[in-house]
Design a binder for these strands. Structure first.
Lengths: 178, 178
DNA sequence: GAGGGACATGTCCCTAAGGACATGTGTCGA
DNA sequence: TCGACACATGTCCTTAGGGACATGTCCCTC
């Protein structure tokens, strides 16, 4: 039920259409909470049916902007402060790492190098965001304060993964019993 | 399709029953790739039907131990070196952090403190594992070498999250426009 | 010998997510 | 004026995952 609350949270900042929300998920949220547009439109309809959001306006090209209702705001706030955090982490790269011993040394080195590069790039992207935010590019609203916190998490996690992949390359290759 | 390859990878170490595999997923793998037993049994049956694993022996209490076949081994290896890594990350705690501005300062501090504690504990657990491995408790097989690498990732990620939660507590609370 | 608990394998149902496919609309430039 | 393209919203199908429920077995202890 996180997408639901993700949408409500974004709508708490102000009205937006499904398209807007899909874009925001695609940009900043893409790597921490992927969501495709079909899911988003479907969920918005469900939220509207439950009275947690309402159509604020209909624009050109069928655009429907939604506004969060009081009930919706109460729901996100309740979720944030009273519902247990789901700490589930499902990281395929880590699952794979358990099976590195099945790879030959060359493939493994290539793999780790590519992983390191990937994580380094994303970390760098987040770092750029952080710099822009700290420079004041996005203003100083409470929302962007929170965004800054989320970005910091991105920087730290992806940096940690990049460092890990680098470190793993220095591990002595397992003496492989063929 | 990661569960599939996770099972094949574990079976590459030696024959095991669904029950054994479910336990291994519950222990070490629990926090990086959760999997409940119904999924595991179902997937094993599918793998057997496709000839990637085969029943090695039937023991007491209906126990069926599976052994990976050559085709199965080829399949994991192919996955490891030729299939693109899925970097999807879906971290509810980070999603929530985007909406911290909706929480009142007290709730937020409590939340962050609890998160920090949670991550610190898990990081510590992984650190213990790492120490045990480095002490040689699990031998020095290539498999445990890889396990060591995976554990290191756990240590680093959870430490990063713990540090992040600590850092977030020191952020000036957003001047909240009520 | 009765009962609890770990061992062991499953079914069933519901929701979440991914991805292909479908469709319509304003705008702008060639 | 035609076409490309971004805007905008959806359906449909399949797979993955979570969780409740069901069942049977062996062993150990009381």
């Amino acid at each position: 039920m996180s997408l639901r609350h993700g949408l409500l949270g974004l709508l708490a900042e102000g009205p937006a259409s499904g398209y807007d929300l899909a874009r925001r998920f695609g940009e900043l949220l893409g790597s921490i909470w992927p969501a495709q547009h079909p899911k988003i439109y479907a969920e918005l309809n469900r939220l509207a049916a439950e009275g947690l959001v309402e159509v604020e306006s209909e624009g050109p090209r069928r655009r429907k902007a939604y506004r969060i209702t009081d009930a919706g705001l109460a729901e996100v706030k309740h979720w944030l402060s009273s519902v247990d955090v789901d700490h589930t982490m499902r990281l395929q790269p880590l699952l794979r790492s358990l099976f590195f011993w099945l790879m030959d040394a060359d493939d493994l080195q290539r793999h780790l190098a590519a992983e390191a590069q990937f994580y380094t790039e994303i970390a760098e992207q987040y770092r750029q965001y952080a710099v822009a935010k700290d420079r004041g590019d996005f203003g100083n609203s409470p929302q962007t304060q929170s965004m800054r916190v989320a970005i910091e998490a991105g920087v730290r996690i992806y940096s940690a993964l990049a460092d890990w992949a680098d470190w793993a390359q220095t591990m002595p290759p397992a003496a492989k019993p063929e």
